[in-house]
Amino acid sequence: MYRWLNERLALDSIRELMSHKKVPVHSQSIWYYFGGITLFLFMIQVATGIMLLLYYRPTPTEAYESVQFIMTRVQFGWLIRSIHSWAANLMVLAAFIHMFSVVFLHAYRRPREMTWFSGMALLGLILAFGFSGYLLPWNEVSYFATKVGTDMAASVPAVGSYLARFIRGGEDIGGGTLTRFFGLHVAVLPGITTVLLLVHVVLVQQHGISAPPKLKRPVPEMPFFPNFALREMMAWYGTLAVLGVLAALYPWELGVKADPFASAPAGIRPEWYFLAPFYTLKLIPAHIWIFEGEVVGLAGFAILIVVWCLLPFWGVKRPRWVAGAGVAFIAYLATFSVLGYYR
């Protein structure tokens, strides 16, 4: 059988290529697994997302009911939906851990700049997946959280109102927004993500896995295949176990159907990964000098994101600055997310 396949698919050359790939072995090697875990969770999202697509209907009159149908009538529908929701959250967490591990291990150095850029773009896409998917069940919380989110876009100077109208597909959140977000979530984003993911993986393959610069050379290594691949598989199974526990013991709630004519419920807030910027914008005063506070806040975030993305250009010669910035970034995210949740 192998011989038959090998003759047609040149499996030996792939094996040969993989046998040359090595993974550095050191005390921080555990962080290498998070890129693979993010990939695994993305694959779960694709698989469960396709299953949900069979029953989901993207209209304001049917969206909520179709999700309710999936959860109550479809065999294992509750599990698929719950895994999809939990895996989305775990994927964001894994992607952030992967990004910070790259920062602290200084793996963004030459010649891996493009790997870093593609990774940052993938993180942005993962967040876009979260934002667009959050509205799809059309429940009260998701409806008003999306309203708050798109209102932020409206405050961008000059193009804000056009931008908000473009995102919403109208003046307010409605059927147009739902179909737009649905199209984005199931077609546009997966398409771009798949291409970018391939680029990212090819770049990792091309440049190999980076060892921290402070380690004494030569750094001990293990073969990627099968040694690291088997360990990665263990990590994937561990992730699957965590996902199973979360989905079975804490099934993702559906909540109350969105009513556009009702007033927003008290304490409305976005998903946990948007809490820190959300709370920061809440703290900024309405006006700073001659500018609107929200505009200043958004401009500040935009500058910080650009500076962070350009890390390979300013961080290589300043590893201590990078480590400090990484710690400060984590402290900011943790503190403001907790404050945003409880206030």
Binding site: L230, R231, M233, M234, Y237, G238, A241, G244, V245, L249
Partner: peptide
């Protein structure tokens, strides 16, 4: 969940032994 977790645990142990 208990059945699935047992199967996952067994697989992890199997992988570890293989490594």
């Amino acid at each position: 969940l208990v059945v699935s977790l047992s199967a996952i645990l067994l697989t992890i142990v199997g992988l570890w032994l293989r490594i």
